[in-house]
């Protein structure tokens, strides 16, 4: 099997290599980096395009596409980031196929791959198999990265994509983007939290347990309480936290991503009939405004 890897974040190749390793076969990579960085990924061949600050990420598509058409890999694995999905989609259209998005439990299937996807935000799991050339985006945090050097590095000239997309300027994003996928402990708030100020209660608890705050969509949507990177649910994030606190979440909608995959689920809700109490390991029927500060204090003292 011939596998080609791509990530818009050069740090992610270690994980992609590990993922490719489970499939077996010849592993190569396309990377937007200089020769040195290209040499630091444990693949058979690293094809690199020199980065150019005046170019948009989108502009590198043509180089990638040409490489794919020349190399004809069986499987293309891409990091499931916004940019990764973009590349995957355009490539899929050019190859007349679809991307297996946010694939988990990936395994080889003949010369293609098989895996699982979240459906309806986690209400169901879709098992899918590739047809023809396989392209998959893989969420982070599923594989322990491997390290090493590339056996060979090959420079690819930049190919103008003729897409007419022009960079006007670049800005760094305001606010801290968090990667919930790699968070060990997550405190997730739902509709039970009514004011923006109350998020601080969840943040305090998260800090005390060394975790991150996430929220269900209704909380973040329109009220701007939390950054979009903290949405849990319907965004295809494969969340496998160690401990998951469901605060003010009724659990009525079964698409609380990660609720099945979390090792321990702890629910805080004032409604004793809330469905969340049927799927939790520990819970308290109480007022989150009273319970959270107490828990935080106790964890801090611990």
């Amino acid at each position: 099997m011939k596998i080609l890897l791509f990530s818009d974040n050069n740090e992610n190749y270690g994980e992609l290599c590990a993922a490719a390793g489970t499939l077996g076969g010849e592993i190569t990579a396309f990377i937007i980096a200089d020769k040195n960085d290209a040499g630091n990924i444990p693949v058979k061949k690293a094809f690199y395009v020199e980065p150019d600050a005046s170019k948009l990420f989108e502009n590198y598509y043509a180089s990638f596409k040409e490489l794919v058409f020349n190399e004809k890999p069986d499987v293309i694995l891409i990091s499931a980031t916004k940019k990764g999905r973009y590349m995957g989609a355009r490539l899929a259209a050019a190859l007349k196929t679809s991307v297996l998005t946010d694939l988990s439990d990936m395994e080889a299937d003949g010369n293609g791959i098989k895996g699982a996807q979240m459906y309806y935000g986690g209400a169901a799991v879709r098992t899918v198999k590739s047809k023809g050339m396989a392209i998959a985006t893989l969420p982070q945090g599923s594989f322990a990265p491997v390290y090493g050097k590339a056996e060979d590095v090959v420079n690819i000239p930049y190919k103008d994509d003729g897409s007419l997309l022009k960079k006007v300027e670049t800005r760094s994003k305001a606010g801290r983007t968090v990667n919930l996928v790699t968070a060990k402990n997550v405190v997730c708030v739902g509709r039970g939290v009514t004011q923006k100020e109350d998020i601080a209660l969840a943040e305090a608890l998260a800090k005390a347990i060394g975790g991150e705050v996430g929220c269900s969509r209704p909380v973040a949507e329109g009220s701007g309480f939390l950054d979009t990177s903290r949405y849990i649910g319907v965004s295809g994030l494969t969340l496998k936290p160690d401990v998951y606190f469901a605060v003010g979440i009724s659990g009525q909608i079964q698409h609380i991503i990660g609720i099945n995959s979390a090792r321990i689920i702890i629910a805080v809700n004032k409604d004793k009939n809330a469905p969340i109490f049927k799927v939790c390991d520990y819970g308290i029927v109480g007022d989150l405004y009273k319970v959270l500060p107490i828990l935080t204090k106790m964890f801090e003292g611990n």
Partner: peptide, 22 residues
């Protein structure tokens, strides 16, 4: 272009359900 083998609700993990009230 994609072979959908199955669409199933996930198997619910058995949870401890140790709940306190108040």
């Amino acid at each position: 272009t994609v072979d959908v083998i199955s669409i199933l609700a996930p198997v619910g993990k058995d949870r401890k359900r140790i709940i306190v009230e108040g």
